[in-house]
Design a protein around this nucleic acid. Structure first.
Lengths: 141, 141
DNA sequence: CTAAAAGATACTAGAGTGGTATCATTATGT
DNA sequence: ACATAATGATACCACTCTAGTATCTTTTAG
């Protein structure tokens, strides 16, 4: 899949932090974004380890956004939560044929991959926040 | 994933049948294409049920291609072996957000999806056969 | 010192993919 | 008629990935 729930939750959480402009705890994120708590915590930990947010323990602690929204690109989050995006190999996890250079089908799939990679590389959090007011504000699953 | 092994095997089998121009048994396909026999049989059965090939039981029986290579589109095989391809919903199985109309991210993912769908819809077996001589002739996995 | 937070880590459930196995059915050739 | 060679139908298995849970430890505010 192009985007998994983990990546999506990460985007929602970062968006929330960016809009709030202040620290927020996992409990708050859980409540506001209606994401399972334990899952949210795991996601925040990974975001913390990778420099997207800073964490503070203890009462009143929580997570603080470390980057500007325009510096956070979707492709980074996809790589972080769904694994390395290696062009012409695993973006869509195709295992089609060994003769990549000469195989027509592989070339066509590669084109799709490149297009996807390009689009995903350009999307940043700022755009997501501006482009769709509703993103992350409602959800059913 | 964009293309699974089942779909890939189906393409290889159809390509083989098209090149041979005559009936071939599952045993022959298995041997020539180096695809696990039981798996190949399952794939051929599905191709048979869906009008791509005709099957003949009994000694000397096998499978005969029913369509012209240029009439077999990759998207059909993908739908058959990987499920319905519903635009803006399941091509990449994204479950991102409910507000599809207003969500920026969903729109962008939809663009990728559309592009992929378009490319896949245009690829037919004839092109695959002509475009890459090596397709299906070697494989390691 | 207590409680509230995050850190670390291990575990579980369900779905999808890739593949196997078995028995039933049909057709061929002698 | 009969043995055999083929497909049809169907059930099952192993592995991986995603989504989510649970538990125990560490840090820190008041």
């Amino acid at each position: 899949m192009l985007i998994t729930r983990s990546t999506d939750y990460a985007v929602r959480a970062l968006k929330y932090l960016a809009e709030k402009g202040k620290e927020a705890s996992a409990a708050e994120l859980t409540q506001k974004l209606k994401i399972p708590r334990a899952f949210m915590r795991k996601i925040m930990q990974l975001l913390g380890k990778n420099g997207f947010v800073e964490s503070r323990k203890g009462p009143g602690g929580g997570f603080l956004l470390l980057k500007k929204p325009e510096e956070i690109f979707l492709i980074e989050l996809i790589k972080l939560f769904q694994g390395q995006v290696c062009l012409n190999e695993c973006v869509f996890k195709k295992k089609v044929c060994v003769n990549k250079s000469s195989c027509f089908l592989s070339k066509k799939l590669g084109e799709i991959e490149e297009y996807a990679y390009l689009v995903l590389s350009r999307i940043n959090l700022k755009e997501i926040m501006e482009g769709g007011r509703s993103y992350g504000e409602t959800q059913n699953n």
